[in-house]
Design a protein around this nucleic acid. Structure first.
Lengths: 130, 130, 130, 130
DNA sequence: GTGGTCTAGACCACT
DNA sequence: GTGGTCTAGACCACC
């Protein structure tokens, strides 16, 4: 488990931890059943208060991404493939809505948006080959 | 000038005001030189503290979107068309980068992303006709 | 707003606060839009840490019972009558399921259960008249 | 002896074990004198620490439901029928009090409560026949 | 004034 | 060892 938090960022530290763990679960890097580091250890690693980590774990538990119990520790919850896929799509759709709202306000039409998307896709592909 | 603020939203009210005025300027709805409502009147309309509106106007002035002078009121700043266009494109590109990063992490490929974008474009088109 | 918390109880203080506020909302004692005491004030009244109250308010907000915003304070959320009724019924059904499970395990049959329920109903009625 | 514990549940594992053994004794499934599985074996079966099982047995012994002796193992204690019946009724009454308190707070009247109880009784009956 | 975040340190129950 | 709760005290952004 490699996480990185920025004290300078304006998004709360506990959100950063949450987001990164969620991402790793959704991308398959963290498989169901994988044990998570104990709150104390992670807190020490990240040079952060235990309470901050606790809040992240609490939210992840509430949202069903991990299970956690006193004396047992925390684990990646058993998540079906369909759930993961669905959640990933939901996130992309959210980003698309944001994109289209931005385009609409700026008077950028459908054709231009598709062009920009493809331009960036190509840029990404180049990075992978380099 | 029609603005709407949501007390429930988690983005600060002054940011909401800022964003909406910026949007209207960038989309051409608010042309250069147009007078903005006085802070007091806008505050009353939105049922919001004058200080909140003041903060929004302050930020817009700082970013060069409007000019404000004591006793004169506030006006949309003279902004070249090319500047507006460029700013709009920059925003869309930002949203596209965000979208592609989200897709990449979730293992959603190019084809699926394009499909989702088009699906939402169609949805938007329907709303306009209804 | 009259609340009472017991330090001795084994249910967490923040849960006690949550439950009592929920109850008052569900029973109509606290109407939609009613302002809640600020966290600091309630904490002082209850002789409890601000953080404890905060956790209660956070949970209530997450569950949609109240709205809360920095600089604005907290308010009972706009909840439809049907929602309130539905939530109340849900709670009773939960209690009934628990009751029947207990009865089933102990070999107490339907007739006896109804008898006990009516006995307690009568007892309650007497208390009201006394 | 068939027991099942849920790691996910928020009630402690030792309580789950306790409750289930108590239930089986009270319902007559486990008769007086019946030998209980050794702590080690039960621990292994349930994939749980021996200490956890020990705590459950300890509490059951303290409450008089079982007897335990070093080198002899554990057995269901000799419990009179009247004791069992009385204990069962006590539990049901507890559940009824909880139910009525919930109903009272939610403004659900006697008639509705009885209806819900009967609805759930019918549902239970159906399950048995299926 | 308000709530949101973070800290350090404590005690507890559970495994 | 683990996580859950509570404390007191701090700083911040928002209204």
């Amino acid at each position: 488990m490699t996480l990185f938090v920025s004290q300078a960022s304006d998004t709360p530290i506990y959100s950063q931890i949450e987001e990164q763990i969620k991402s790793q679960i959704l991308s398959g890097t963290l498989a169901s059943g994988t044990p998570l580091p104990s709150m104390r250890i992670l807190a020490k690693d990240l040079r952060v208060s235990v309470i901050t980590v606790q809040k992240a774990y609490e939210n992840l538990t509430r949202d069903g991404f991990i299970t956690t119990g006193v004396g047992r520790g925390s684990f990646v919850a058993p998540l079906g493939d369909s759930f993961l896929k669905q959640e990933n799509i939901r996130r992309v759709e959210e980003a698309v809505e944001n994109l289209l709202e931005t385009a609409r306000r700026g008077g950028i039409d459908k054709k231009q948006v598709i062009e920009i998307v493809e331009k960036y896709f190509d840029k990404e592909a180049q990075h992978e080959n380099s």
